[in-house]
Amino acid sequence: MSSCAESFNGLILRALGRDFGDRLLPRGLEINFCDQVFLIASGLIWNVYFAVLALFFGFFLAVAVALGKTSPSRWLSRPAEAFVFLFRGSPLFVQFFFVYEALVLLPRAGIEIGPITMDTQWMTRAWAGALFVLFLNTSAYTAEIFFGALKSIPKGDLEAADAYGLAGWTKFRRITFPTMLRLAWPSYTNEAIFLLHATTLVFFSAFPAWQQMGDALYYANYFAAQTFNPFIAYPLVGMYFILLTLGVIGLFGVVNRRLNRHLPRAARARLRFRPQYIR
């Protein structure tokens, strides 16, 4: 039995590795409530890591894919459509398994690109491989959201831009892109929440845990298996996720207000706190 302070010091950063806390996880009968509180909280580091990075990189790819889908050129629109279909049409869980098994097939010695040999081993690690899958997955969903928003930009706005002599990159940067973002934002908020929740699947699929570094649900599952009592660990991790979700809603709400600040007060679309389940 250790005190709560000891649990905190030993476990709060344990998800980063055994150099950042206790070498061994608490086992069996020595597990107390504080251990569960702090170790599961520590696992959230990975959930946030996956969600933030996948959303950040996914945003740019999504804009590119959405523009590709609207492109009049088949050479651009077809691949974009195929990409979206592939990742929206199959379960993320299966994507994790498949990509992991594909990544481990890469040559062990690395790939030779010209004079450089690219190491491939790191790609099978969860922090890279799972992030890669989540990035592609959220890009596809977000691209579909942005594509819908691009199509619903009011014609008048675009005609007005033409009348002002805006064209090309300037027109995109000043009119098309901000309007698309404003229209897509409520759905995009929703996608961010889905993605945050999807990060819990990483360590339940093919990606192995290194040195018992895992996400919040990995540790909750660990505790449930060690104590034979799921009635503490799972509600705890559930509560953490409610808080995180509220955080996401708050953060995206701030951005939403900024995106809509030019509109007359009555016309401002309030970010709908009523959940949408479009994914």
Binding site: I193, F204, N221, G238, I242
Partner: peptide, 14 residues
């Protein structure tokens, strides 16, 4: 709202 805030996997496990 509870189902909204908590990942579905947790429900499936619990």
């Amino acid at each position: 709202s509870m189902v909204r805030g908590i990942p579905d996997v947790i429900f499936f496990l619990f």
